[in-house]
């Protein structure tokens, strides 16, 4: 019984949150890695692109709510998603045409593109805060919980409760669906394969008749879809706060590098690696040990490796270890 309780405890505080957080990071990391693979630079504006995308979704959600449209138990934001995607594609292509294209055609050093992406980051950041304000926005509606801790206890008779928020399930399922669709596209369709080919060997792709402009436009479209989905899921789960997306960019970068920069499948796994390590190392296992250990062995400290204040340090440590020992990422696989 104690054993089952300890498992439920871990599910509630470690596994479910890590799966949710991992999903959010995974989608973000795939986006960063796609940009890196095809356009060949680390895009520091990506966090703010997610913020912009989420803001667009929120604005449409508010409009839909004002005219009384909703999805019942599901959040209204899901209907608003396609509109947010369109807005994000538009702004991505706008910045590509006005900013990034020039440096791409000049074949500038990737470092210059990083610096330029800072400019885009500032602009997006300002736009979001000017349009929607700097504060917290909660735009989640519909059913909050699939199962509440108390209901679970009553249902099963365990001492430990298990709560599952609907956003957590939506996040996980949407991530799996989005990622599967993307991997199907990249590995099975002619256009997807040509995108990988372009990323692998640009010159040979040109010699094979692949049109680089189409590939680049397509990349921004995919990246915008991913940014909108990832940003919205994060906003639904936590709340929307412009600067939070910027802070998420760091673990996303870490996930991207862990998975091997330019490798979408690696980025997907990398997101979960970062999330699980972060949550597993900052979780206080005291109660868990109280369940499984005999009474005289019970710990009196929190049994927590490092406090949550230092979660950046975990991303960083993983990053450094990977960069030193496996600079191409820990997952072998196709690099886009």
């Amino acid at each position: 019984m104690d054993f089952i309780n300890s498992i439920v405890l871990l599910c509630n505080f470690l596994i479910i949150p890590a799966l949710t957080y991992g999903s959010q990071l995974a989608l973000g990391a795939i986006g960063v890695t796609l940009i890196y693979g095809v356009l060949r630079f680390a895009n520091f504006a990506y966090g703010d692109l997610m913020a912009f995308a989420t803001m667009s979704v929120i604005l449409v959600t508010w409009y839909l709510q004002s005219i009384g449209v909703n999805l019942g138990v599901l959040p209204t934001a899901l209907i608003a998603l396609p509109f947010g995607i369109i807005a994000t594609i538009a702004i991505s292509l706008f910045f590509d045409k006005t900013v990034f294209k020039y440096y791409r055609e000049k074949k500038s050093d990737p470092v210059i593109l990083i610096v330029v992406s800072l400019g885009v980051m500032f602009i997006l950041n300002a736009l979001v805060r000017i349009i929607i304000g700097p504060g917290d926005v909660v735009f989640m509606d519909g059913a909050r919980f699939i199962i509440k801790a108390r209901e679970f206890k009553d249902l099963t008779g365990f001492d430990e409760g298990l709560a599952l928020k609907s956003t957590q399930l939506i996040t996980f399922l949407t991530t799996i669906a989005t990622a599967s669709l993307l991997f199907y596209f990249l590995n099975k369709t002619k256009t997807g394969k040509s995108m990988r080919a372009y990323s692998d060997n640009e010159d040979l792709a040109l010699l094979s008749g692949i049109d680089p402009n189409k590939i680049i436009t397509l990349t921004w479209v995919l990246v915008s879809i991913l940014a909108t989905v990832a940003g919205t899921l994060y906003g639904l789960d936590k709340s929307f706060k412009p600067l939070a997306y910027w802070n998420n960019l760091l673990p996303i970068f870490a996930a991207t590098i862990v998975g091997g920069i330019g490798n979408p499948l690696g980025a997907f796994y990398g997101g979960f690696v970062i999330a699980f390590t972060e949550i597993a190392l900052t979780y206080a296992y005291k109660k868990f040990f109280v369940y499984i250990l005999p009474e005289h062995l019970e710990p009196n400290s929190l049994v927590q490796y490092i406090s949550t204040d230092y979660k950046f340090a975990i991303s960083f440590a993983i990053l450094v270890i990977v960069l030193i020992y496996r600079p191409n990422g820990i997952f072998k696989g196709k690099v886009i």
């Binding site: 990737p110 990083i114 760091l250 230092y310 950046f312 340090a313 960069l323």
Partner: peptide, 28 residues
């Protein structure tokens, strides 16, 4: 010692993360 010699874009990301850690330390 740890980060120089990395590719330039990795150095950017690594230093950004470290500054986050430093802030965590002075904050906490």
């Amino acid at each position: 010692k740890v980060c120089l010699g990395l590719r330039s874009d990795y150095l950017a990301i690594a230093t950004l993360l470290i500054s986050g850690i430093v802030i965590s330390v002075v904050k906490h």
